[in-house]
Every structure is written in C-alpha cells, then in structure tokens.
Design a protein around this nucleic acid. Structure first.
Lengths: 232, 232
DNA sequence: TCTCATGTGTTGAAAATGCAACAGACTTTT
DNA sequence: AAAAGTCTGTTGCATTTTCAACACATGAGA
C-alpha cells in the first residue's frame, strides 16, 4: 500500500505520535514521502516479523492491534502482550541492530507504516540538522519511558505472592496518579492477566486486603487506606 | 572529590564505557573536565538519590556496588536490584525529566561520576557535532538494550509456575548463548532470587525437569534436551 | 424476547509454593 | 585444627495458588 493513499486523518495521527514531537508538519510529511517508507495492511493472524529476523525498520501501528508472541525451546507459545493502535514497535531491536526475540503477529486487521532507521539516524539522513536532533531526543524519551514502565512492572512481578503483587501495583499506581484513590485502567480480569496471576486468586487477595483494612473498593478502582482501619 | 584526582586507570575505565563508544580520548577527557561534571565518594548505606527527586544527571558507577530500593505506600522496603561496577544509572529518569521512582543507595563504598544531561543533549552542549551524535546513538543503544533485557526478564517472570519460569529463562539463555548447553551466570541460589521464586522450589523444579528428560545438569549450567529422553 | 457471549464473583479440592529446619561440603578465620 | 560462615541440596508441613465448576449480571444480536 502506498503511503500517499493514507487519509488526511491518518496522516494527522501519524504526525501526532511522540516520535515526531517538535517537528513541523512539513518535515514529517517529507520524511514520510521518502520511497523507503512503506505502509502495509495485514490481515488477521498474519506474521509481520518473526523471531531472529534482523529488524532495520521501526514499525508504527496506524490501525488495529498486534500481538507479541514467543515460542520457547520446546515449542510452547505464549502471548507476551497486545500492542494497541498508535504504538511504536521494534525500536528496541532496530536501534541496536539486534535480532528479534519474539514474533509480531496481526491480532486484528492492521495497518503499519515502516520507517527504516537509516532514514532517521544515519549520517545520510535526509533530515535537516535540527529535526534529526529532535528525532533522537524523541526516541530517547520513548525508550526511557519504556524502561521505566518495564521496571515498574518488574518490581510488582518480583513479589512472591499475589497479595504482594497487588499491593506493589496499587502502590505504584497511587504514585503515578498522585492520589490514594486510584482508577484502574483495566477490568479486574485484565488486571489478573497483567500481574500474571490467577483471576480467582486475585479476588481472594482483594478480599483479604479489604477485610484487613488496607484498601477499599470504590467504583472503577480502589482507595488505599493508610493503615488497618477495621481489623476483623 | 575532584574529577582530576581520578587515577589514569579509572579514566581509562570511564573512557571504555559504552556511553563513550566511538568518541576519541581527547573529547571524552575534555567532556569530563567540564566543571559541571562531579565525582563523589559515598560510604556504605548512604542514600545517593531518593524517590521523587528530579534527576538531571547520569550516574556512572566507577567503583563499588549500588542498591536500588523501593518503599511501597505502606512503608515496606524491597531491594529491586544490585548495580555492579561500571554501570550507568538514572538514565531512564534523567533523559525524560521524570521523577525518580525508587531510592539509590550505596551498597558498598562507591565512587560515582555525575554527568549532567544538559552537557550531552542540550543545544548548548560543548560537544562538537559528530561527538554529540555519537553520544545520542550510544544512549539509544544502551536504552534499547535495557529494554530488551527487561522484556526478556518480564517474559520469564510472567509464567505462572516456578517450573515454567525456569523453562522460559533457560530457553531464552539458550538463544542468547546460541547453544542448547548453557552456562549459568549465577549460582542456583542467585538464580532463584533472579526469578523471584523460592530457592527450594527451584530445586524441586530442576529435579522434575531432569526426571522428565527436558534438561540435564552439567557443570556450571544445564543442557536442554529436545524432548523427554528418559521418561520415568 | 430469547439466546449467546462475556465479565464478575464465589467456592472446594488438588497441586504448587513458601517456610523452617536440617545435613553435608567447602572456605575462611582464629 | 577447631570454629564460624556460606553455599548446596533435601524434606515435612502449613499456606497459597491454581484449576474447574458454579451462579449471576450485562450487553449484543437474531
């Protein structure tokens, strides 16, 4: 699919991505019109990239959802995460010329814009100096944010029990949302998947924390209580 | 402590860091001699950075070990990880002006060189054009590698059982080491901490995988077997 | 309206995990 | 050479987690 066939709304959405922050519209447009920039539509369950393949392009997921999968040594497949619309993917591999460690599959119909890293980073980049620096800075921001997110998740997941994972997660969310009353971005079922615990076990943990007065369920989320209030 | 009081060996070690890859010695030396670059010695258990403080410098751990800690909403402290000599730290926060989410403490006596990000990234950076680009590229590489590492660890930790965490870890190591016979970088006790599982549970998992013929213990590591060889 | 699918919340029983305690091998210190 | 410390590997037992099976509410579609 040709990049020029994208709708104006799609181009606007592309331009609004954090990757292009600080770049003027004209620069982005001319970048996207380079012949090396491609746009492909994938139908459901099509493999976009496979493990071990060298990644030289950044992927910009314009529409649809992708699935990051992994097969282990013995052939067992796991779904690592779903990538919603608007996300950048592959940057951790493309920026470091590292072989891909998992498979990227279209989870629904999806449209992806591929941007060769050489266009952005090489000395041959067509970007004028200022714009090149802005892209670098944006990429660094994106990578830094990803690291912080992964570290936070890892610190919750390092807890031994479901109960402690939940507490770590809530605690972190309270910091992020700057409030001791927090709104969950997930359903409870999704929260269980996110924390990689059994849904039913999560319910049990919620109940016991409530009974001990550490948290209180509120619509859409939880309130964190400073110390046990109504000990049984 | 003045940067100029560092020994030649220490300067060499600094220069060899991935952050300065591709930069000539002269550039690195002049960068380090900027008055904004500082070097501090910390004694054991001193807090270097505290949660929520704005981080504007990269830390280069020249000697010693640091400890990354976290306190949750209810005051429980956890050690997230230890940072060995030679590591860069704080970059995920400094590069994105994000407030720190945990505490950094000297685990042993430690020497740290602080490099304000403004020296590296701002338009006012004293680095000549080429060198500035090289630093950007190095920072991106470092961040990308960190992301890949964290993602890999997260994918092992997302497994529900100790057994599956171990299999995921071994499977990944086999890929990295390009061999089905892998060398562990840890003792088994450390491996248990790394995977955030009980040491004794890990032993049980190892035994059962061995009995079922999936793996075989070899000196310093494990051999992965394609399929059950000696089913009980 | 009825059905089908999906999310919520609960439970009992089986299996896995975490904990505490132990014995042996090996090092370092005294 | 004895003592103290650390790392390995094992086990029993209490607790937690998972699994499978429920009942119930809600929303979409026929």
């Amino acid at each position: 699919m040709d990049i020029s066939r994208l709708s104006a709304a799609q181009l606007d959405r592309l331009h609004a991505l954090p990757l292009f922050h600080g770049l003027d519209e004209e620069t982005v447009r001319s970048l996207l019109q380079c012949p090396e920039v491609t746009c492909t539509a994938f139908s459901r369950d099509t493999t976009i990239w496979q493990r071990a393949c060298p990644v030289t392009k950044l992927g910009l997921l314009l529409t649809g959802t992708l699935r990051i999968e992994q097969c282990d040594f013995w052939g067992n497949r796991t779904i690592l995460r779903l990538l919603p619309q608007g996300n950048l993917f592959g940057e951790a591999y493309a920026l470091d010329s590292a072989p891909l460690e998992n498979d990227v599959v279209a989870h629904s119909e999806a449209t992806v814009v591929f941007l060769p890293v050489s266009l952005l980073l090489e000395d041959a980049s067509p970007l004028p100096g200022k714009a090149g620096t802005a892209i670098y800075r944006n990429l660094l921001r994106i990578a830094a944010e990803r690291c912080r997110f992964l570290t936070a998740k890892l610190s919750a997941m390092s807890q031994r029990s479901t109960r402690d994972k939940l507490m770590a997660y809530l605690s972190h969310e309270a910091c992020m949302q700057l409030s001791s009353v927090i709104t969950l971005p997930f359903s409870r079922t999704q929260l269980a998947d996110y924390l990689a615990v059994e849904r039913t076990g999560l319910y049990r943990a919620i109940r016991s924390l409530e009974e001990e007065g550490y948290i209180r369920a509120v619509p859409e989320g939880f309130a964190l209580l400073q110390s046990p209030e109504n000990p049984a």
